[in-house]
Simulated assay, not measured.
Amino acid sequence: MNRERRFAALFDMDGVVLDTEGQYDLFWIEQGKRFHPGMPDFYKKIKGMTTEKILEDYFGGNMDLQQQISQELEEFEEKMNYPYVPGVENFIRVLLDHGVRIALVTSSNNVKMSYALKAHPEFTEYFERIITADKITKSKPAPECYLLAAKELQMETDVCCVFEDSFAGIEAGRNARMKVVGLATTNAKEKIEGMVDRVIADFTGCSYDGFVDLMDGGTMMF
């Protein structure tokens, strides 16, 4: 196992670092009932998208409605809880101790990030770079966000690993030609395992050795 190589770990935020997807489901289920009653899986369709992309794709004909939903979402996010996904803090610290470069790559905007940073000021120690929706022009599944993270870390894509939970995010990682670990926090293991290099329930027990083995194409349990 070659420990001389340097790797980068790129973490999505909601459903990967923070266990917030259940709260977002409640918000978007309500919006679906109000404005897209014929689309019962509306809240699933928009996972991984930026708010701007959601509003453009599903509320594009009504600017007043877009503004209303955006304001309601901002108020919702300000009051949200931001608990960690089990094991992620320890895993991040282990990676940092071994010189892994780490970035946070999220579809959330800077306003939402300010709320997350207020809850977790330690993010500035954990993540060398933070890529938000305000820094990109194309939402996931476009690879722009992950390619930007690699560029800012000055790392090649073949030494980057993406940690994602949504279909759009997983596809973005794949489109960036990076290794992808799928978190079965939002979608069942059976739904994502054919799309990713590994599936984990959370980060409990994840090790540096398992991470390096994954990056080197091995089969060690992560």
Rank of each mutant, 00 (worst) to 15 (best):
F203R: 05
A133R: 03
K189I: 11
G61N: 13
T186P: 12
Q67D: 10
E74H: 11
I192V: 12
Q23N: 02
F42P: 07
K33D: 06
K112W: 00
M155G: 07
F127R: 02
I192R: 09
Y24I: 01
P37R: 11
Q23A: 02
Q68T: 12
D19H: 09
E171W: 07
I29N: 00
V159T: 13
A150N: 06
L55Y: 12
E30W: 00
R101C: 05
M215S: 12
L104G: 04
D19C: 08
S114E: 00
L104W: 03
G22I: 08
D134I: 04
D202W: 05
Q31D: 01
K191S: 11
V196M: 06
F35D: 04
F42I: 07
L153Q: 05
E164D: 07
T124V: 06
H120M: 00
A149R: 04
D134E: 08
E78Q: 10
A188L: 06
C145Y: 10
G48Q: 13
C206R: 08
E125S: 07
V212P: 14
F11I: 04
D213N: 14
E156D: 12
K45W: 11
L18M: 06
E128R: 05
F211G: 15
G60W: 06
E78S: 07
V162M: 15
S70P: 14
D19Y: 08
D209T: 15
E21W: 02
V180E: 13
L153W: 07
E4Y: 04
E152T: 06
I130W: 02
K47T: 10
L117D: 01
F42L: 08
G61Y: 13
F222L: 05
K138H: 14
A119F: 01
E122D: 00
K118L: 00
L153G: 06
G218W: 09
D64T: 12
G48W: 11
S107D: 00
A172E: 01
F7V: 01
W28K: 01
D209K: 15
E56A: 10
A176Q: 09
F11T: 08
V162H: 15
D209E: 15
K53T: 14
M80V: 00
V212D: 13
P141N: 14
M195E: 12
E56G: 07
